[in-house]
Amino acid sequence: MQILVNGERFTTEASSLDELCGVLGFAGAKIATAVNGCFVAAAARARIHLSESDEIEIVAPRQGG
C-alpha cells in the first residue's frame, strides 16, 4: 500500500503503525507518532491499522544545543 511518511511517499506491507515503526528502524525508540494529524501514543500503536493514503508523521527527539 502507498502511504506518506513525513511527507514522502512510501510503499509498505505493514498493517499497523507499530509494525511500520519497526520496518523503519524505530522499534523501541522514543518517538512521537501521528496518523492523519492525530497523535498516537506509544501504547496504542499496535491497535492503529494503516490504510491506503494514510499520512504518518514520526518525530524523534534531537540532542544538542
Rank of each mutant, 00 (worst) to 15 (best):
N36Y: 09
I3G: 02
A34I: 04
C38D: 15
G65D: 13
A14R: 01
I58T: 06
I56P: 00
E19K: 14
A34C: 08
A27P: 03
F26Y: 11
M1G: 09
S51P: 04
S16M: 14
V40F: 09
R47N: 15
A32S: 10
N6G: 06
L17C: 01
G28K: 02
F10T: 08
I58P: 02
N36D: 15
S16G: 13
T11N: 03
T12G: 02
E8C: 04
R45K: 06
I3T: 05
S53Y: 08
V59Q: 13
A41D: 09
A41I: 04
S15Q: 15
G25F: 09
D18H: 06
R62D: 08
R62I: 12
V5G: 01
V23I: 08
S53A: 15
D54Y: 08
I48A: 00
L17Q: 00
M1A: 11
I58M: 08
T11Y: 01
G25Y: 10
A32E: 09
I58H: 07
T11P: 00
S16H: 12
K30G: 07
A32Y: 06
V5E: 00
E13D: 09
A41V: 05
M1V: 15
F10G: 03
M1P: 03
C21G: 12
G7Y: 13
F39T: 00
P61S: 09
E52D: 14
C38K: 14
